[in-house]
């Protein structure tokens, strides 16, 4: 009975509804995009209406919000924070810099495409995206979660070798703990 396919489907629907309406966000605010997070969360745009809430530690968070460019140094910290988060987890790439490097295209120490290093579920483009765009991105993610399509974390586990190779290519001094999820 518990492993029955139909009952599993019902459980999935309930769980996905709860996940959709309750997103705890770990805002990794090293890029300039972090300046758009306070207005998104506070009175003017009030993201808490949709159950979106800031969390201070990766252990409690569901969504990793990477705001803007990532230097190779900060990429290491992002990977570490991402791997400490508990399943199911999602990543939102915020701003042009996570898509194609943005204005840091020619830089010697920033990465260009975030998806090569950690699996991104939703991109929000713009430089900067306004708070409306940020909320739009979150609602996009909620739709994906409801349909059960936001499976970046499983993609990461399945293709861990490819991701690790990419990560080690840009991070020269790799000494990181191994996580067993």
């Amino acid at each position: 009975m518990p492993n029955d396919k139909k009952s599993q489907k019902i459980v999935d629907i309930i769980q996905n509804a709860a996940r959709k309406h309750s997103l705890f966000v770990l805002a990794y605010g090293t890029g300039c995009g972090a300046i758009e997070i306070p207005p998104t969360m506070t009175s003017r745009y009030d993201a808490e209406r949709f159950g979106i809430r800031g969390m201070a530690t990766p252990r409690q968070a569901d969504v990793l919000l990477v705001t803007g460019y990532l230097a190779t140094k900060t990429l290491k910290r992002v990977i570490r924070a991402y791997e400490q988060m508990q399943d199911p987890k999602y990543v939102i790439g915020f701003g042009s810099c996570t898509i194609n490097g943005g204005m840091y295209w020619d830089s010697y120490n920033t990465i260009k495409l975030l998806d090569k290093y950690i699996p991104v579920d939703v991109y929000i483009n713009g430089c900067m995206p306004r708070p409306e765009a940020v909320i739009e991105g979150f609602i996009e993610l909620q739709g994906l979660i409801k349909d059960g399509k936001a499976n970046g974390a499983t993609k990461y586990k399945e293709n861990i070798d490819w991701y690790r190779a990419n990560q080690k290519k840009v991070i020269k001094n790799w000494n990181m703990p191994d996580y067993n999820w």
Binding site: I14, Q15, A17, S22, S43, G51, Q86, W181
Partner: peptide, 22 residues
């Protein structure tokens, strides 16, 4: 602000119970 719906904490708790913990 408008704030979350009053049943928001039920969603939070159901979601947290359905997360894996490793």
């Amino acid at each position: 602000r408008v704030g979350p719906p009053f049943y928001q904490n039920f969603f939070d708790i159901v979601k947290l119970y359905s997360k894996t913990t490793a």
